[in-house]
Amino acid sequence: MRELRYTAPASLAEAVSLLSDAGQDPRILAGGTDLLIQLRAGVRDAGHLVDVKRIPELNVLEASPEDGLRVGAAVPCASLVEHAAAGELYPGLVEAAALIGSTQIQSRATLAGNLCNGSPAADTTPALLALDATCVTAGPGGSRTRHVSELLVGPGRTSLEPREILVEIRVAAPAKGAADAYQRLIPRGEMDIAVVGVGAVLQIADGRVASARIALGAVGPTALLAEEAAASLVGKAPDEAALERAGALATSAARPISDKRGSAEYRRDVVSVLTRRVLASAIERARRRA
């Protein structure tokens, strides 16, 4: 491990300019719960850590039924988990955030970091994908907005430019009668990485599914949408048969590999089960809201 420079700029402009010095091999440090471990293990390299936790724009946390959710890129998961309105409006996203690591880790780790680390098994990514969240970034060319789906490229990779900083994640206000849910399977009770994760948003109107989005984690190079599975539910009564069919279709959308955390075959089996369970959870929440 080589010597590291560390800076903690107090403004977005300063951060963008620090990141512009490519010779320094800069990296953005938010919670550091992935990056510091990767540096120590030699998985990633850096010459300069630009700590973004002091930048005011990255510390926004707001949630309301009218304006939806804004989570600054430096906001630790613990703040989101403890935010009453966020938990009320986006229980699925919050339950995903609450699954990351331990209480200590959650006090450091951020939603944005979870997303930018690019792990296919990140817990909050399928939850954000299901919610069709958007990312606001800042860079030398100014501010940009894009969907989470556009950010995901491959394992450990995103579409962010080298000098681009993720500023905040936004989620639209929940539609009437809509709710989200997230579940994952890990062999242990905690402190583990998802073998499969499933996030879903479901909208119920007049006893039928008005709209649905289902996102799968840890079963492809990035978190991915199970579009056919979601489409199969629309217009149907959300009964046992509909859920089972959606589960089966989600399995065909999965593109898992076998690794030390689970075989492809096992992951496929679990996708259908978890999809059913997550949908059931989202339906129950949506019914309470409808």
């Binding site: 062999p187 242990r188 009770g189 905690e190 583990d192 030390k260």
Partner: peptide
């Protein structure tokens, strides 16, 4: 050896 750390060598944690 593929799981040479406590993340993937899965010993039980308190919740287990």
């Amino acid at each position: 050896l593929l799981n040479d750390g406590f993340l993937d060598y899965r010993m039980p944690v308190t919740l287990d």
